[in-house]
Design a protein around this nucleic acid. Structure first.
Lengths: 156, 156
DNA sequence: ACTGAAAGCGAAATGCC
DNA sequence: GGCATTTCGCTTTCAGT
């Protein structure tokens, strides 16, 4: 499956990113094919990994997750497996939903969801600051999110 | 629909976050109900907004989006509608997929997807740095993403 | 609110162009 | 690589409890 994608495939990707539960019938009408080849294309995109998975998007605030933050973390590289130690700890903290290895002053950027400020303090005190290889960290509290596309910018 | 959610609803939210295309039949088996009331619960979660939408997750790298960054932006508040000016510009830049209003040294944190470094330079030169209210900005290039849960941490 | 059954419809497989 | 058809299974509805 090194074969490249054509315009129709990109349309499918766009439509399924926008609505992951779109039926194959509707999808086929949107892209101008009949259902059978449409389904075949979708399956190919799935098995070849262009489509990784499907997810429901929930309203975090309605569900009580009132605090969302990014945390910039600097590590103390005094051990030779510093990064692995850090990642192992991060993986065990379920409030951390994203972990990016980045360039710049910080080494890692984390995204965190918790219910309230008290829970955030507990996270910081009991978990983040207790990770041995963490040198410094700095919270960016999210006050509002004005743009969050579930769709990746594709050309074609 | 101010009525609170019960344990079964949370199970549904968890399962549909993990697999947004799970069939109603399978979902009903997982939560231990028959299909009819399961579907009814899902519909209620949808209309009441706990479930906002469904999306396919694509592999950005396979699709050629080799550069992912976060950009911290500081604004110059010399106009009284500085923030609105900024947000209007951001909304027109399709490479920016997320825009968060945050506390800390930066005012905003942006997430950006582009194909390569050349495209990134163009984005910076032609778009970001041309926004009149932007005072300073600083790129955090994402080298790798070691954790990215499509699922929000729910208690119950 | 859940159950069970019945009807309608989309998904998947097959053969053909 | 796409189309048409048919079979099968899921979704959805509705009466019942």
């Amino acid at each position: 499956m090194a074969a490249e994608l054509d315009k129709t495939d990109f349309k499918i990707l766009k439509l399924l990113q926008e609505n992951g539960r779109m039926t194959n019938l509707l999808l086929s009408q949107e892209i101008g094919l009949s259902p059978a080849p449409t389904l075949e294309r979708v399956r190919k995109l799935e098995v070849s990994g262009f489509i990784k998975s499907y997810h429901a998007l929930v309203d975090e605030e309605k569900l009580g997750l009132g605090i969302k933050t990014f945390i910039q973390v600097q590590l103390d590289f005094h051990k030779n497996n510093t990064i692995q130690i850090f990642l192992d700890e991060v993986n065990q903290i379920k409030e951390i939903t994203e972990c990016h290895h980045v360039t710049g002053q910080a080494d890692f950027l984390l995204k965190v969801y918790v219910n309230d400020i008290k829970a955030y303090e507990r996270l910081i005190m009991d978990k983040i600051s207790k990770i041995s290889v963490v040198k410094t960290f700095q919270t960016m509290m999210i006050m509002s999110t004005t743009k969050k596309e579930p769709i990746v910018p594709l050309e074609y």
